[in-house]
Amino acid sequence: MTTTLGLSRGAARAQGIKEYATTRRAKQDHPLWFLIPALVVLVVFFFIPTLFNFVYAFTDWSSFKTQINFVGWDNFVSLFSSGELINSLRVTLVYAVLVAVFQNVFGLALALLLERDTTLNRAIRVAFFIPVVMSALAVGYIFQAMLKPEGAVNGIIGFLLGQNVEIAWLGSTTWTIVVVALIHAWKWMGLSMLIYLAGLKTINADILEASRLDGAGWWATFIHIRFPLLAPAVTFNVATALLGSMNGFDIVQATTAGGPGGTTELLNIFIFRTFGQGLFAQATTMSLVLFLMVAILAFPVIRALRKREDVL
């Protein structure tokens, strides 16, 4: 077992921190079997369901029959031969990328705006963090009501413009996905903000002072010094936003339920619909595909982001 104190390997090497092996003493202090309680929870609630996810994908499990039989690759063949799965995969990817971009841009902007520890800033930080702890379904339903053609958003715009506005915010087959991604980003931007704030606090004041003495302005300091030094926070935020929103369901289900015209039908909504039809095996197959896609995407993304940390 080796460790690099939480830094990326490149960064650890750059700072001259050697990877070290656990000593015999450490082994005695923390015997391996201490892990068992946590492992049991992990195995029962994570590994076994995941394992079943693999197993059921090769069966004909449905609500119509009591027996479950193995059918080989049947489910995969029929899924990939239909365009629906590909469409949902595409929608899911677009959604994830949009959420990752919006959530990080908003979170970073908020962190920079609320960086100083004044009382007012503290209060505003709390306000922006509240959506993070709100129920996602509640958020979705509230936005759905506000974005209706006769909803509050149009009411406010209409009041400001002095004329009746009836925009169907969730009615466009092109832009609705952007709207729901914005809602998702709005809900979670408080968390990104918090992590960016923490990142900003760790930046050594000496470095910032040095840059000021060198005559660097706010923007130059941010681009050349602060943002590169935020790399670990960026890694965490981008990875969680991107991979988390690939598993998105609740907000989109509450606002559009996949509509209009299937343009916001995330893979999870498609899975939910298929499951609801009673085709449990097919739904399982799809969730396996989603699992694989998230895994395939996660490794290169996290690797690339960790690579950026090597400058530290």
Binding site: P31, L32, W33, L35, I36, L39, V40, V43, V44, F47, I48
Partner: peptide
């Protein structure tokens, strides 16, 4: 101990 852990794990599974 490792062995015992593995047995428990297998039993739970």
């Amino acid at each position: 101990n490792t062995f015992r852990g593995a047995v428990v794990l297998a039993a739970v599974a």
